[in-house]
């Protein structure tokens, strides 16, 4: 079902594949648009090439975050669905 929600976007679901993150931001149960606000804030703090893990239960993030990544040139490495929330792994653009 969730895969269907993400259809048409660039989401790659990962399972059992551990992506190493340099920072973690937990916005589980925080209301929209906290997932985008916190994502922007935290990405500014990261160095080029570093990876942020953003945790959110908001299903709209499955379209918002890929869109944000394509607009800003950051790379969405993948999304893990824990059953309770999503773990988005985003690498800060290198240039």
């Amino acid at each position: 079902m969730l895969q269907a929600l993400a259809m048409g976007s660039e989401v790659r679901f990962v399972e059992g594949e551990e992506i190493k993150a340099d920072a973690v931001e937990d916005v589980v149960y925080r209301l929209c648009p906290m997932h985008i606000m916190r994502l922007e804030e935290r990405m500014k703090e990261l160095r080029k090439g570093e990876v942020l893990e953003l945790q959110t239960d908001y299903e709209g993030a499955l379209s918002d975050i890929p869109e944000w990544c394509s607009k800003t040139g950051n790379e969405l490495l993948g999304v893990e669905d824990t059953g309770e929330y999503f773990r988005f792994f985003i690498r800060k653009r290198a240039d």
Partner: peptide
């Protein structure tokens, strides 16, 4: 439920 007030809580 609304938006960003109180950090989305």
């Amino acid at each position: 439920y609304s938006g960003v007030q109180e950090e989305g809580r």
